[in-house]
Amino acid sequence: MDRQQALRNSLPPMAAPVIPPPRGRGRASFTPVSWDSYFDSQRRISVGNNVFNIYEKGREGPILFLIHGGGFSALSWALFSKAITDIVPCRCIALDLRGHGDTVTEDDSDLSAETLSRDIGDVLQALYPGDSCPPVILVGHSLGGAVAVHAASRNLIPSLAGLVVIDVVEGTALDSLTTMEALVRGRPGRFLSVENAIEWSFRSGHIKNPESACVSMIGQLRVIPAGEQLPGTSADMGHTVNTTGSISEDAEDNAESPPTAAMPGYTWRIDLLKTQPFWTGWFTGLSDLFLGCPVPKLLLLAGMDRLDKDLTIGQMQGKFQMVVLPKSGHAVQEDQPVKVAEALAIFMVRNKVARAIATFSPTFPGC
């Protein structure tokens, strides 16, 4: 795979033609699925005037604090959370970052690495005041991986026991910024239904696992209020997000019906183009910060082509563990949640952060 193809694979997909959903049994494959099929609970955590939305799974063991990528939501971790808690005793806490999902803050537009990483520490402190926090492994995908590295390097998590970064590398990420704007603009601007949004995500390769798309796409959308004019984007995709959060479960419907005043449709929860001033700050210096974190580290990639020079040298020197899942798209934890869960379980057991359940036999799939 050449360098340009690697960059395209690591970014949001361009708009793709959407085939009308099949009727009968096939149509059900794009039906939204509730978060409670995968998580135990949903909670709102107040930090000052900010209210952060989290989903939880598991009640014992170390905490896996899960941080999604830009434009995604905490629901991106649904299938993974169910899989990992079946393998090792642990507690998954999946957070909606500010500006995403059901989290609402005083300034949803401040998505700097400093602010996002501080939010991680604040939420954990609110959940576990003082010194009561169990061992924490920060797990971040894409932008979330950068946020996890920044939080770890700033010592914002006193009980930090591990750092896992999924499919983000400084060199590749910075190189991709030259094409990011065009790719974001190439996405559909409006969906007439949740089902159509789920179908688009699957058919375009945004999320390759249809089961994950059915639960996670809900958190990426908001309802378009009557009268709101969307900025110029690519053509509508025959699709239908809340102004401040994700969609309710009963918001799916007739994909063939045109938008009306009562059903204005759906668009993206966050306008990624407005985050452009922060893109360079998310990733600059990331490799050195990652390598400098004094805790066990795991880098999980969708392809070896993602590695930059600094991480290639660091990997050869044994400074972190690495696993490659080449059949994944960029949303690795959604495309192959069981494989990612197995890789993290092995990482946790090897570093004595968690014990294996009796039926789990750890053998590291080294690369």
Results as ranks from 00 to 15, higher is better:
358 A>Q: 11
282 W>E: 03
27 R>D: 03
43 R>D: 15
142 S>H: 10
44 R>C: 03
198 I>A: 10
366 G>L: 11
186 G>H: 10
17 P>S: 05
253 D>Y: 11
139 V>T: 13
39 F>A: 09
90 C>Y: 03
137 I>P: 08
117 S>C: 13
301 L>N: 03
158 P>T: 06
80 F>I: 08
112 S>K: 06
84 I>C: 06
235 A>K: 12
263 M>T: 15
186 G>V: 10
308 D>K: 01
31 T>P: 00
137 I>W: 02
118 R>D: 13
29 S>K: 12
117 S>R: 08
355 R>A: 12
169 V>P: 07
302 A>F: 00
118 R>P: 00
230 L>H: 10
173 A>C: 09
263 M>E: 12
226 A>N: 08
308 D>H: 02
95 L>G: 01
223 V>Y: 05
130 G>V: 11
5 Q>A: 15
341 A>Y: 03
202 F>H: 14
338 V>N: 02
212 S>V: 06
302 A>T: 06
96 D>H: 07
314 G>Y: 01
34 S>C: 06
175 D>W: 03
103 T>M: 05
266 Y>H: 09
39 F>H: 07
68 H>I: 10
51 V>P: 01
116 L>Y: 06
102 D>Q: 05
186 G>Q: 06
327 K>V: 04
105 T>G: 05
333 Q>H: 14
203 R>M: 06
124 L>F: 09
81 S>T: 09
126 A>Q: 14
149 V>N: 04
312 T>H: 05
200 W>Y: 15
339 K>W: 02
268 W>Y: 14
7 L>D: 04
12 P>C: 12
135 P>Y: 01
88 V>E: 01
297 K>I: 04
178 T>I: 14
167 D>A: 10
68 H>R: 08
252 E>R: 10
365 P>S: 11
233 T>N: 12
292 G>Q: 14
304 M>C: 01
363 T>M: 10
310 D>Y: 01
253 D>I: 11
329 G>T: 09
121 G>A: 11
357 I>F: 02
1 M>F: 10
170 E>T: 11
